[in-house]
Design a protein around this nucleic acid. Structure first.
Lengths: 155, 155
DNA sequence: TATTTAGTTCATAATTTTCAGAACCAAATA
DNA sequence: TATTTGGTTCTGAAAATTATGAACTAAATA
């Protein structure tokens, strides 16, 4: 077997966390597997057998992770198999994208604010402040990301 | 009717967004309703009828929102009804909590890193960097939140 | 050409989530 | 005490999500 019992437990814990953040159980466990296992490159069959899920479940999950750019595959000469692996270098981009998307709600909130009655001053003020905070976060995040990238020599 | 057709459309749009962020359809629409409607305080029956959902769906959703502190209710003397309303002042706390929780994954990642083989240098380095970034974000967020609070005279 | 293999697709089964409707409870009122 | 009212709970249905297993492709191999 390619992972120890202790590793399996950790994969499950990571799995539960990622499930709670929008991934399917199968996706979540594949992400976990790639994070804890010594082995970095996995065939579909190995994934399937190690996680104890069906071939199609593994295939579906892997393809969704490929779409989300969380996973990629490499090939080997004279070998028809695909070797899937974490695209871990992409994580910073993902965090950035995720934040941007989460803060997009401010656009709908602005729509809400604009159409609101002017009578509810206090509520409108709180809503406005929420929107302003999101703008504040957005701009400061750009700073933060740049600071980090500079710190790590990525920019 | 307590909301216009245009408001209903906006409620649905907000509903879809919040559904995409972990709320049930009913919860998501209540949050939307409280955000766009002129009326700030709503009885269960009004919510139910305005959103066209069942009494129990409305009740369940409201109680979950109460638990999550997204909603509160006020009462009126000699009136047994509860008047539910957005707890919008709480939003900053919610954002803080949400971020902390999202970054908690770093603890599991650290576990993963600690048990990993030392053979996969590059991967381990990337994982370490991810964890470091989360720490970086966490500390800078505290700064950001304080800066914001000061700016808004909340601290 | 027949067979094996890696991966995909499809039908459907299992599970989970969410909701509707009815029954219910407790407090207030008639 | 009987009735109304606001809210809660329960059961089961509907819908959505995931996963299974089998059938299938296409490429490689025997």
């Amino acid at each position: 077997m390619n992972v120890t019992a202790a590793q399996k437990r950790l994969i499950e814990k990571l799995g539960v966390f990622f499930e709670g953040h929008g991934e399917t159980p199968a996706e979540a466990r594949i992400v976990g597997l790639f994070m804890v296992a010594d082995q970095l490159e996995w065939t579909l069959e190995e994934i399937q057998q190690t996680l104890g899920i069906s071939k199609s479940a593994a295939n579906n999950a892997i393809n969704i992770l490929l779409l989300k750019q969380q996973v990629e595959y490499v090939t080997k000469p004279g070998d028809r198999k695909k070797y899937y692996k974490s695209k871990i270098e992409q994580w910073l981009t993902h965090v950035e994208e995720h934040l941007e998307k989460a803060l997009e709600v401010r656009l709908l909130m602005r729509e809400a604010l604009e159409q609101r009655t002017k009578a509810t001053k206090e509520y409108n003020g709180a809503l406005k402040e929420m929107i302003d905070f999101m703008e504040f976060m957005l701009s400061h995040h750009h700073e933060l990301f740049n600071k980090w990238k500079k710190l790590k020599g990525k920019a």
